[in-house]
Structures are given as C-alpha cells and as structure tokens.
Measured scan of single mutants.
Amino acid sequence: ASVAVIAAGTQGNIFATSALRSMRFLQILRMVRMDRRGGTWKLLGSVVYAHSKELITAWYIGFLVLIFASFLVYLAEKDANSDFSSYADSLWWGTITLTTIGYGDKTPHTWLGRVLAAGFALLGISFFALPAGILGSGFALKVQEQHRQKHFEKRRMPAANLIQAAWRLYSTDMSRAYLTATWYYYDSILPSFRELALLFEHVQRARNGGLRPLEVRRAPVPDGAPSRYPPVATCHRPGSTSFCPGESSRMGIKDRIRMGSSQRRTGPSKQHLAPPTMPTSPSSEQVGEATSPTKVQKSWSFNDRTRFRASLRLKPRTSAEDAPSEEVAEEKSYQCELTVDDIMPAVKTVIRSIRILKFLVAKRKFKETLRPYDVKDVIEQYSAGHLDMLGRIKSLQTRVDQIVGRGPGDRKAREKGDKGPSDAEVVDEISMMGRVVKVEKQVQSIEHKLDLLLGFYSRCLRSGTSASLGAVQVPLFDPDITSDYHSPVDHEDISVSAQTLSISRSVSTNMD
C-alpha cells in the first residue's frame, strides 16, 4: 500500500485504499475450498504439459491467421470504412471474430473485405477451437489413466503375492535341489530340531500304542527276528556328554522351557516337584528354603522380579524323601529317536503342500481383483469380450473355409453374387472337401465294379455249361463312374476274359 501511495501521489490514498479493500473479495475463495484444490491444478498442469506441443502448434497457427486476416482486412477497409482507421481496430475485429465472440461493433463494408473476412474466419476458427478439443481429450485420457492406475494399485499386491507364491512353489520342487534360497528361508522360521524330535516322538508313541520308545526297546525280541524299528541315535539331556547330531552343545531358554513342560507332561506320578524357592531380598537368592510367592517384596526391581519368575519355571527341586529312583531318572531322560535326515523329507513334503495351498489362494485372490467394480468397468469388459468373440468367430470361419475348400476369392465371389465353382473344380482343390469328394467317387466306382462281377458270377453259375458261358453278354464299365481312378482293366474288353475262362473250363471238362 505504501508503494502504491508513493507512486500515485497524494491523490492515490483513496485509490490504494479501495484497491486493498477490493482484495477482500479473495476471501470468498476460501468458501469454495480453492486453497485446498491442489490436486485439480496439478491435474491441469499435467494435461497442459503432456499436450504442450499440440497446444503450441495450434496457438501458433491461429496467431498467424489472426495477424494476416487483420492486416488484409485493414488494407481493404481503411479507405471505405471509418471503423478500420488503424491496424489496432482491425486487430480487435480479428480477435473478436476468430474467437467466435462477434460483438458486431465493427464489420467490413466492401465486398473484398467481406470475402477476406469469411475466408479467414473459416480457416482461423478451426485453429482457435483446437486447444479446447486438445485439453478436453487430454483430461479424458488423464482421468482414464488415473482410473486404471487405481485399479492397478488394487491389483499390484495380489499380483506380487501370486508371483511370489508361484516362485516358491517352483523352487520347493524336490527335483530342483539346486534352488536353496527358499529352503534357507524356511530353515530360519521353522522350530528347532528338538521340537521336531518331540513332535515325531509323540507320533511314534501313538503308533506304538502308547508305549515310549524306551519301553519298546525293553520289550523282549526273539533271536533272529528283525527289529520293528531301525537303530537310531540316542540323545540324552544337555547335561550328559552325548547330543543329537546337528545340535549345539548350548541350550537356549526356549529349549529349557519346552524341556520343563515336556517333563511335566510325562505324568505327576513319576515326577514330584517341590515348592519353588524364593529369594528373600533382591540381592541374594536362598535356594535351600522354600517360601511362598506372596511374600515377594514390593520394592524389588523389574529385573529381580523377572529373575524370580524364571526361577519359578526353570529351577524345580525335589524333596529328599520323594527323590526318584535311578530307573525313573533313566525313563525321564530325553530320548531322541530320530535324526535330521529322517525328519527333513517329511518336513519338505509338508512345506510343499503348504506352498501349493498358498499358490491356489493367491491365484483366487488375484482373480477376484479382475472383477469389474462399476458400470464403466462392466461396459469396458463387455466390449473387450465382444471384440475377442468376433476375433474367435473370424478365426473359426477361416478354418471352416479351409476345411470346406472355400477360399478368400470364392468368398468374395459369393458376396458379389457370382456363380460358384463347379464340382470338377471342387474335386481338384487341395482341401478337405476335395479329398472327401475324391474318396467318395472312388468308393462308388469300386462298388459298381463289384456289383458287375457278382452279377457275372451268378449268371455263370446258373448257366452251368461252357457254351452258355461264352454266350453271356458282359456289360462294359461306364468310364464316368470311375472318377479319376483309372484301372488298367477298364480299357480292355471283358469278353476276352470271358473267352479265356470258357476255354479253360472246356479243357478241364475234356480232361475229366
């Protein structure tokens, strides 16, 4: 405001104040949320940038038409019409005319000016109207692209899951042992070998009828009888010197917790746990005396209480009078009846079946994303299906024409109403129809010849004498029936064969 007042002088105070007050009108834009329509302006900018070359070309040609039209109309009207006294007036008329506004304040009066105005109007309006069409088509394409992008975003994750499931299904095939990355992934998420051994031990116990592997080994086996189970490696608790092959000598807290839970599941009659010990102070733990958990001091820290809870689970003690015997301790020893080589084939089979199920689920979810969402998608899918159906029908028609023997030239002739090819031409065609016709002709010829021969033979049998045999009239074959199959017997006289037959029969009768 200060700059405006200084620039306008003393009389500019009122002007500056009114100008600043008129800017209050811009507050109405906040009512229509114009300040939060950044996406709309961004869309407009992207459309203009995408079609910038077309817009520049249309505007450039339109500007050239405007300059030439205004100049030529000015030359034609400057002497006869006072409205075109300057080139600026003519340029104003050209702008209003070519933009199809047409105020009518300035019009050419001479015939030359009117002809020039009409010609440049028809030429220039087309170029001035091009930017509107370019922007409209650009907006339509952009909206369609955003629509497809939205659908693509919805299909991206199911497609990625389907590709991942397909690759993992491919890589978990037993015949592709060189693909090891997927197996490394499952090695990292699978439970430890100790848990798998416990699982298979329970399965084997159920197969043995509820007997433990130790009891199965204690059962008497006759001499020479084959053992029911192959000899396997035996594993004891981590306190002993022997372990399962492939295990580490260090046992983690999870393994100890699972070991304690498995020992508690063996039965309360074979294992008696004394009350857990509780320390009397955060600094020292008295293991010899058993106290109640309700006497825990409230001033303990979080670490002390955590250690106390761990001691409740991981440090059970047995009383002296209830101490288990050596046999019970041997039964409680952890027996590992299986090795990694025995378990891994079954584990890989389970993983393979899981990968198949996940692949089928991913495939079903991806197919669900291909379903249409709204009416536009339904129409688009219907149009695509219609085009596909037309293509299939056209391909089927082409194959039928190839089989029947109607080529493209014959199809055009039928469409024009011309006469089709004759039967002889159809026979000569190298097509399925021509071959079928040729075979039918040959079969008819053979059938006719057989009928003639059978009739001749029956007449010979009825006559009974050589004289009557020679008097029999043998009809000749019709050459038209034989089609294109020409037998060497067709052109010979059958009477010669009949005479030869009669001579042979007379000779045979004389010999008798």
Rank of each mutant, 00 (worst) to 15 (best):
R435L: 07
L357H: 00
Y334D: 07
R217Q: 06
Y485N: 13
G409E: 10
A424S: 13
R313K: 00
E380A: 09
Y186H: 04
R317L: 09
D423E: 03
F366V: 01
A329S: 15
K254Q: 13
K449R: 09
R355G: 06
T182P: 13
Q335L: 08
I446L: 10
D512V: 09
A274G: 08
Q444K: 08
D512N: 11
P479S: 15
H202L: 08
I379M: 03
Q335H: 05
G385S: 15
S240C: 11
Y170H: 01
R264P: 06
T266R: 15
G224V: 09
F359L: 03
C460Y: 14
T339M: 02
L501V: 12
A384G: 03
P345S: 05
P408S: 10
R411S: 05
F366I: 02
I253N: 02
L190I: 10
L454S: 08
S299I: 12
K315N: 14
S319Y: 05
V443G: 07
A274V: 04
P408R: 05
D342H: 04
E195A: 00
T369I: 14
V507I: 12
T482A: 13
S502R: 15
E195K: 12
T339P: 12
S502G: 11
T465S: 03
L501F: 12
F359Y: 02
V287G: 04
S283T: 13
H386Q: 03
V361M: 00
I403L: 14
P238Q: 10
K358E: 01
A166T: 11
S395G: 12
Q499H: 12
A413G: 09
P479A: 15
S240R: 06
R176W: 03
V489A: 13
S445C: 12
C460W: 14
Q286K: 03
F477C: 09
D304N: 15
V328E: 12
T180S: 12
Q297K: 13
G210R: 11
K315T: 14
S508C: 14
R505C: 12
T234I: 04
S301G: 15
S242F: 05
V426A: 01
R207C: 07
R264G: 02
D484Y: 15
D322E: 09
V375M: 03
V232I: 02
M511L: 15
D304G: 14
Y170F: 05
I351V: 06
I503T: 11
A471S: 15
V443A: 02
S227F: 07
K419N: 14
L387M: 04
V427A: 03
M251L: 02
F302L: 13
P226L: 08
C460G: 12
P213H: 13
H272D: 08
E331G: 07
P275T: 06
E195D: 13
P275S: 04
G417V: 09
D418H: 12
I354M: 00
P479L: 12
P479T: 14
V221I: 12
Q204H: 06
M259V: 01
S284G: 13
E215A: 02
T509N: 15
S249I: 06
C336W: 11
D401G: 14
A424E: 12
D304H: 08
R411T: 08
P279T: 02
V296E: 11
T172A: 08
H272L: 12
Q335K: 01
R406G: 08
E415A: 11
R459G: 12
P293S: 07
G209E: 14
S497F: 06
L169M: 09
P226H: 14
R217W: 13
G209R: 04
S319A: 13
R205W: 05
I481N: 13
V340E: 06
G455A: 08
Y457F: 14
P238R: 10
R217L: 03
Q297R: 10
K449N: 12
M259I: 04
P282A: 11
P220Q: 05
K298Q: 05
K449E: 00
G267C: 12
Q381K: 01
